[in-house]
C-alpha cells in the first residue's frame, strides 16, 4: 500500500536519512523504532510531504507521491498525527476536529464521524468547547488522533504517540490504536517506546542513524537479544 524506496533526506548539509526502504501492506500495523535522532520523524515528514527528499521515492497505492505537496497528500487519505501532537492550542476541541475534516464537504458524514470520534474519546466530548491548549497531554494526544480520524485516513501515521504520557495512558492510547487498525485503517507507528510498539505491531523496522538495520515481525524483534539489549532495557 505504501512503499518507500531508497529514501535519502538531507537537512541542510546533514545527511539525516541515508538509504531507507520499507513497505506497508494494507491492514498492517508497522512500527518504526529507533533511538532519538535516528531519523524517524524525518521519514514521517518526507512521507507526508513536509520535506522533500534528495532522492528515492514514496509510492502510495502504486502512485508516486514523492513530489506532491503536503496538503494534497492529505486528500489521498494518508494522514499523520505529528510528534508533540501539534493541536491548535487557541482553537476549541470541536474546532480542531472540524479542521481535521478540512478537505471534506459531506456535512452529514462529517457530523457522523464527529460522533464516532466523541464515542471513541468521551473525554473530548466532555470538553468540546474548551481550548485545546488547556487540555492535558493525554487529552491532547486523543484530540490529535481524533482530528486525524476526521480526515478519513486509509493510512494513519502516528509519530511518538506515547511521548510524555503516564504508563496507564500509554496503554490506553495503544489499545485505541489497535482498535483503529481493527476497524480497517493501516497504521504506521513511530516510537521510542519500543516495547509497546512491538507488542501491537505486525512487523517492525529498526532505524539507526539514517539506516534500517533490522527488520522482522513484532514478535521476532521483541524476543531478539540484540533488540532487547539496545531498546528494551536488557
Amino acid at each position: 500500500m505504501l512503499k518507500v524506496n531508497n529514501l535519502k533526506v538531507n537537512y541542510g548539509m546533514i545527511e539525516a536519512i541515508k538509504d531507507v526502504s520499507f513497505e506497508i501492506n494494507q491492514g498492517e500495523i508497522i512500527a518504526l523504532i529507533g533511538a532519538n535522532g535516528a531519523g524517524k520523524t524525518t521519514i514521517m515528514h518526507a512521507i507526508s510531504g513536509l520535506i522533500k527528499p534528495v532522492s528515492g521515492s514514496i509510492m502510495l497505492n502504486g502512485q508516486d507521491i514523492t513530489k506532491i505537496q503536503a496538503h494534497e497528500i492529505v486528500r489521498k487519505h494518508l494522514i499523520q498525527v505529528p510528534e508533540r501532537r501539534r493541536v491548535f492550542a487557541s482553537q476549541s476541541v470541536e474546532e480542531n476536529l472540524q479542521l481535521g475534516a478540512f478537505t471534506r464537504k459531506d456535512k452529514v458524514e462529517i457530523a457522523k464521524d464527529m460522533e464516532m470520534v466523541y464515542a471513541r474519546f468521551p473525554r473530548l466530548k466532555e470538553r468540546y468547547k474548551q481550548l485545546a491548549g488547556t487540555l492535558s497531554g493525554g487529552e491532547q494526544q486523543m484530540l490529535a488522533m481524533g482530528r486525524a480520524l476526521m480526515s478519513k485516513p486509509e493510512i494513519l501515521i502516528l509519530d511518538e504517540p506515547s511521548m510524555g504520557l503516564a504508563p496507564l495512558l500509554v496503554a490506553e492510547i495503544f489499545s485505541i490504536i489497535k482498535d483503529i487498525n481493527k476497524s480497517g485503517t493501516t497504521v504506521l507507528l513511530v516510537e521510542q517506546n519500543a516495547k509497546m510498539a512491538l507488542k501491537i505491531a505486525d512487523r517492525a523496522y529498526v532505524l539507526e542513524t539514517g539506516n534500517i538495520v533490522v527488520t522482522g515481525t513484532g514478535e521476532e524483534l521483541i524476543n531478539s537479544d540484540e533488540i532487547k539489549k539496545a531498546y528494551l532495557g536488557g
Binding site: V74, I79, Q80, R86, Q91, L99, F102, T103
Partner: peptide
C-alpha cells in the same frame, strides 16, 4: 468561516495546518 479558521490554523502552526490538508 472555514477560510477564516484555516487562516488561524496556519498562523498558529503552518506545518500542522498542512497536515489538515490546508493549502498554505
Amino acid at each position: 468561516t472555514k477560510t477564516g479558521k484555516s487562516m488561524r490554523a496556519v498562523s498558529e502552526d503552518s506545518g500542522a495546518a498542512q497536515l489538515m490538508g490546508i493549502n498554505v
